[in-house]
Write a protein that binds this DNA or RNA. Structure first.
Length: 717
DNA sequence: TACTATTTAATTTTT
DNA sequence: TTAAATAGTA
């Protein structure tokens, strides 16, 4: 057996990890240190050298993209297909388990997945039905609460209201929402994980069956696991499974959605013999960029501790541009990108990163104006588009008539005379009798409703039944085609004029193509339509179709994680924007922002540009800002301030060549302070200078207060 | 019932 | 500024 292809491309630390004995291993892998390579080669090593059957291996990732990439690379390395090896996302694997064991976890065979849009609609509906004031009970916030509890593995019964009215109501909403989901056979993303965990806990025999099978569990991005995911893995590993976890505590940027870096520490506690291997050699960035990134992240506490190094050269200094406003900033960035392109480089090798999506607009405008092709990441994905969701709603009703969310979506689309009043009655009757809207509609169509509305409802019910009958023998793509045609959805969008309407029609046609080229995962053992619908919910698809065109890349810092580009711009390095002021509301928020900054900087291979604007228009109002505190954390030797001859009208008072950071001592946003009366708090905002300076502090005990600096006597902590 | 005007709030996002 | 949800009008 020739093991050189598996071992040769690795450095010492990587090889230690790949060839480690079959015991628990934690790989702390810095940015650009080859963590995917280690995972891929580890799998190959287990199969080729240790003689482990692929059947006994499970590899878990967070995104479908990562899962697909890993599978592809393993197959390439082993030079064979590995269909019996489970590689997938936490949600994808949980979904597979729930389909196989629907009965044991109390789900109907035909359960459907709710994406977060559907979930929010459903919660909004519940708030309405409970006749709660929707300005106090915002669907988005209730959704946030429910999902946070699910991330922590908590059911309504596990929660205590702690004499808090608000909390009591949130728990009640959670309970009502969950009952509604159960009744309608709907499962949200958090529920997939929670039920998969409960599958283990409630069915020791099933658990044992999987424990015996999956002796090897490999987990990517371990720092992003939430409590349920950790618990699920922990139980599955049991005492016999060997966990191979790869992660980077410095790249933990998803705490706000339940990720717990502590899981990495916890792992070491629970598996005392756990081998810990650090990958610290970086193959991506220049020494300058790495040193700067290291300097930034060094300001964080509670790190596992590692220092990236490279044997590459220093490269160029990091360029810092102080823009007058956001348009000046965009102009500067795009001008540099045009230079880059005219030097013969690829547009796709240049990326503009920013903290919030709203920032993309100025860049887009400028790129459009300069006729430079670009692509914005994020935004609406294919399966999330309204017209696609409309079509899917029809298809979902074919699978599961009790799917009320889908029912509501298409009952009057295209309009067929079933208005708010009629729908209200159907809803009321459904609620009173604890039945689905579908069943309620059946009972109502004959009796309660006026004859006109009754006929309309009847027509809709018949339409769906007919669709079901007509498509039962068809191929998946024929089913989809038939449904969008006969439901008159296609005609509905076709009659609208304009560019938007045209893309809608194109998208619907694209859906048929998507169905045609859809290849169900054999492991999932589902009928084609059910598999397709699950796929649509679990993998929302890419945003733009023409992704292979050579385009400048625009994206948020979050979505840049895992990617690399020769030329990187991080725009909007301003206090309040990055670090974002809203991140300072919770403890550890600033540190997470700093990790985000670290992630951003380490995306750059050769050249990194940082920029900030003195004035920025946000939500239609001009704001003044100071340079981000992160800029001051980079040793000046790595930075060069640039000032090209751009003719912008700048006000005369503009200061030159100075990084303005922390002009007031202790005025840093996020700074912890102590007040004689109010106790400890965090600086949220400030205005003015000298004796007029006022500062807004969020006190742990006393809440948010504005204080005048010269009187407040704040003690820095 | 269907379309238009007004209001409201805006970090990050995968599944 | 802008998108989306709701309130108001034809």
């Amino acid at each position: 057996m020739d093991v050189t292809p598996i071992i040769d491309p690795l450095n010492d630390a990587q090889r230690d990890a790949v060839t480690a004995p079959q015991e628990p291993v934690l790989v702390v892998a810095g940015a650009g240190s080859g963590k995917t390579r280690v995972l891929v080669h580890r799998i190959a090593w287990l199969v080729e050298v240790e003689g482990v059957s692929p059947h006994g291996i499970m590899a878990v990732t967070f995104t479908n993209k990562a899962a697909a990439e890993m599978r592809g690379r393993v197959e390439q390395l082993l030079n064979m297909p590995i269909s019996n090896l489970w590689i997938g996302t936490f949600h994808g694997l949980a979904h597979r388990l729930l389909r196989r064991h629907a009965e044991e976890v109390g789900l109907p065979k035909s359960f459907q997945i709710l994406d977060s849009q559907d979930q929010q609609r459903m919660i909004r509906r519940i708030i309405k039905d409970m006749e709660l004031d929707d300005s106090t009970w915002v669907a988005r916030e209730v959704q946030w609460f429910i999902n946070s509890q699910k991330d922590e593995g908590l059911r309504p019964d596990n929660l205590d209201a702690r004499n808090d009215h608000t909390r009591a109501m949130l728990i009640r909403l959670y309970r009502v929402y969950q009952e509604a989901c159960d009744q309608k056979g709907l499962v949200d993303f958090g529920e997939l994980l929670l039920r998969a965990h409960e599958l283990w806990l409630r069915n020791p025999d099933i658990l044992m069956q999987y424990q015996r099978r999956f002796r090897h569990l490999l987990v990517d991005e371990f720092q992003d696991t939430n409590s349920v995911q950790y618990a699920w893995l922990r139980v599955l590993a049991g005492n016999t499974g060997t966990l191979f976890a790869v992660g980077d505590d410095d790249q933990s940027i998803y705490r706000w959605r339940g990720a717990r870096v502590e899981n990495m520490f916890q792992l070491k506690k629970e598996f005392p013999g756990m081998r810990e291997i650090k990958l610290e050699q970086n193959y991506r960035s220049t020494a300058t960029i790495l040193n700067a990134a290291n300097a930034i992240i060094a300001n964080n506490n509670d790190r596992l501790g590692k220092n990236l190094w490279t044997d590459g050269n220093d490269g160029e200094q990091i360029k810092l541009y102080n823009a007058y406003n956001e348009r000046d900033e965009a102009e500067f960035v795009i001008a540099r990108i045009e230079d880059w392109i005219s030097d013969g480089n690829l547009r796709a090798d240049a990326a503009v990163l920013y903290r919030s999506n709203a920032q993309s607009r100025v860049f887009e405008e400028r790129l459009l104006q300069k006729q430079v092709p670009y692509r914005v990441y994020g935004g609406l994905r294919f399966f999330e588009r309204a017209e696609i969701k409309d079509a899917l709603a029809y298809l979902r009703l074919l699978e599961n008539r009790a799917d009320d969310t889908s029912f509501e979506r298409v009952v009057n689309l295209p309009t067929r005379g079933i208005g708010a009043r009629t729908l209200g009655e159907i809803r009321e009757y459904a609620r009173a009798n604890s039945i689905s809207l579908w069943e309620s509609a059946i009972s109502n169509a004959g009796a309660q409703l006026s004859s006109r509305a009754g006929t309309a409802v009847h027509r809709f019910l018949e339409l769906v039944e007919n669709l079901a009958r007509e498509t039962s023998e068809l191929q998946l793509h024929e089913q989809v085609d038939h449904v969008i045609e006969r439901s008159e959805l296609l005609a509905h969008f076709k009659k609208d004029r304009g560019e938007q309407a045209e893309t809608r029609v194109e998208n619907l046609e694209e859906l048929v193509t998507a169905a045609q080229s859809f290849e169900p995962d054999e492991q999932d053992e589902l009928p084609p339509l059910a598999a397709f619908l699950s796929h649509a919910a679990l993998e929302a698809g890419e945003g733009q179709a023409d992704k292979w065109e050579d385009c400048v890349q625009l994206m948020t810092l979050h979505s840049a994680k895992g990617l690399e580009f020769p030329l990187v711009f991080i725009a909007g390095m301003e206090e309040g924007l990055f670090p974002h002021k809203r991140s300072l509301n919770d403890p550890g928020g600033l540190e997470e922002e700093r990790r985000l900054c670290y992630v951003g900087a380490t995306r750059a291979m050769n050249q990194l540009y940082l920029s900030y604007a003195e004035q920025r228009r946000l939500h239609g109002v001009d704001n003044f800002a100071q340079a981000s505190c992160f800029l001051a954390e980079i040793p000046t030797e790595y930075i060069e301030e640039v000032r090209p001859n751009i003719k912008v009208n700048r006000p005369a008072f503009r200061r030159e060549n100075t990084i303005k950071v922390n002009t007031e001592p202790g005025m840093k946003l996020g700074q912890r302070v102590r007040h004689g009366k109010f106790g400890e708090g965090v600086v949220l905002n400030y205005e003015g200078t000298g004796s007029h300076a006022r500062v807004q502090v969020n006190f742990e005990a006393a809440g948010t207060k504005w204080l005048v600096m010269s009187y407040a006597n704040l003690e820095l902590m």
